[in-house]
C-alpha cells in the first residue's frame, strides 16, 4: 500500500470515528446509549457514503468502489424484496391460496382466481433457464411478455404518436390574408402580427416535412431531396440545442437554489 493511500485511509477512519462520537453525543431523543450509538453510526455512515460517491468526480478510488458495490447490492435486494411483498404477497397470494395468505398474514380475497395460476407457471418456466436442459422452455414466458407488449404498442403508438401529430400539422399557411401592407406591419417575433403567424406556421409545416425527409432511409439524399433533408437536420439541431440549453439551465437553477440556501439561510452571507 502506498504511503499516501495509508494517510488518506487513516484520516478518513479518524474523521469517521470523530463524527460518530460527535453524532452520538448530540443524538436527539434517544432512550438508551445503544440507540445513541446506532444513530450516531448511521448518520455518519450516510455522510461517508455521500462523500465517497462525490469523490468519483476526482477519480476512481477504494471509497467509491465500496459505496458503489454496497449500493448495487442493497438496491438489487430492495427491488426483489419489494416485488415479493407487493406483487406476490399483495397481489398474487390473495387470489390463489388461502394457506399462503395465512402464512403471510394477508387477507384472502374469498375466491380462487384460476387465471392467476398462469403467471406463476410462466414464472417457473422462466426459472427453468437455470437448468442446463430446460432453457428452451423459458422462452414461452419470454414470448408471452414480448408478444403482449408488442401487441399493446402496435395500435396505441399509431394513435398518440402518429395520427394525432399529423392532424396537428394541418395549419393554414395564409392566416387572414389582407395584403402585403398588413403583412409587414409588425415584424417582431413576440408580437402576434400576421407576419409572425404565417412564419411560425410555415416553420412548423416545413420543419415536420423536412424532418421526415431526413429520416428517409431508402432514397439517396441528393438534389432537392438532399436540400430538404439538410434543412430537416438543421431544424433537428436547433431543437436539440434548445432542449439541451433548457435542461442545463433547469439543473443549474436547482444548484443555484441549493447554494442560495446554504449562503443565505444557513450561513447568512448574502442578505444577512
Amino acid at each position: 500500500m502506498r504511503k499516501s493511500t495509508m494517510i488518506v485511509t487513516l484520516v478518513v477512519v479518524l474523521l469517521f470515528i470523530a463524527s460518530w462520537i460527535f453524532k452520538t453525543m448530540t443524538a436527539p431523543e434517544v432512550d438508551s446509549t445503544f440507540d445513541a450509538l446506532t444513530q450516531g453510526f448511521l448518520v455518519t455512515f450516510a455522510a461517508f457514503l455521500t462523500l465517497a460517491i462525490m469523490s468519483f468526480l476526482y477519480q476512481d478510488n477504494p471509497f467509491y468502489k465500496f459505496a458503489e458495490h454496497l449500493y448495487v447490492g442493497v438496491s438489487a435486494a430492495y427491488a426483489m424484496t419489494l416485488g415479493f411483498w407487493s406483487t406476490l404477497v399483495g397481489n398474487l397470494f390473495p387470489r390463489v391460496s388461502e394457506t399462503l395468505c395465512g402464512w403471510f398474514q394477508v387477507e384472502f380475497s374469498g375466491q380462487h382466481d384460476w387465471q392467476f395460476l398462469i403467471p406463476p407457471i410462466l414464472g417457473i418456466l422462466l426459472l427453468m433457464r437455470l437448468s442446463p436442459k430446460g432453457g428452451w422452455i423459458s422462452r414461452w414466458a419470454l414470448a408471452f411478455i414480448v408478444g403482449t407488449t408488442a401487441g399493446l404498442n402496435l395500435p396505441r403508438f399509431l394513435r398518440s404518436d402518429f395520427i394525432e401529430q399529423i392532424s396537428g400539422t394541418f395549419l393554414p399557411l395564409l392566416v387572414d390574408w389582407e395584403g402585403f401592407g398588413h403583412f409587414f406591419s409588425n415584424l417582431s417575433l413576440s408580437a402576434s402580427g400576421q407576419f409572425v403567424a404565417i412564419l411560425s406556421n410555415f416553420v412548423i409545416v416545413s420543419g415536420v416535412i423536412c424532418g421526415l425527409i431526413y429520416f428517409f432511409f431508402s432514397k439517396e439524399h441528393k438534389g432537392a431531396f438532399g436540400s430538404a433533408s439538410r434543412y430537416g437536420i438543421w431544424i433537428l439541431m436547433i431543437t436539440f440545442g434548445a432542449s439541451f440549453g433548457y435542461t442545463v439551465m433547469g439543473r443549474i437553477s436547482l444548484l443555484v437554489g441549493r447554494l442560495t440556501f446554504l449562503m443565505d439561510d444557513w450561513l447568512g452571507i448574502i442578505s444577512g
Binding site: D161, G207, V208, G211, T239, A242, Y246
Partner: peptide, 18 residues
C-alpha cells in the same frame, strides 16, 4: 424557438418513432 422549430422537429421525430 421553443414554440415553433422545436415543436416541428419533435413532431417529425415522434412521427418517425411511431
Amino acid at each position: 424557438i421553443l414554440n415553433f422549430p422545436n415543436m416541428a422537429a419533435k413532431r417529425a421525430i415522434v412521427i418517425g418513432i411511431g
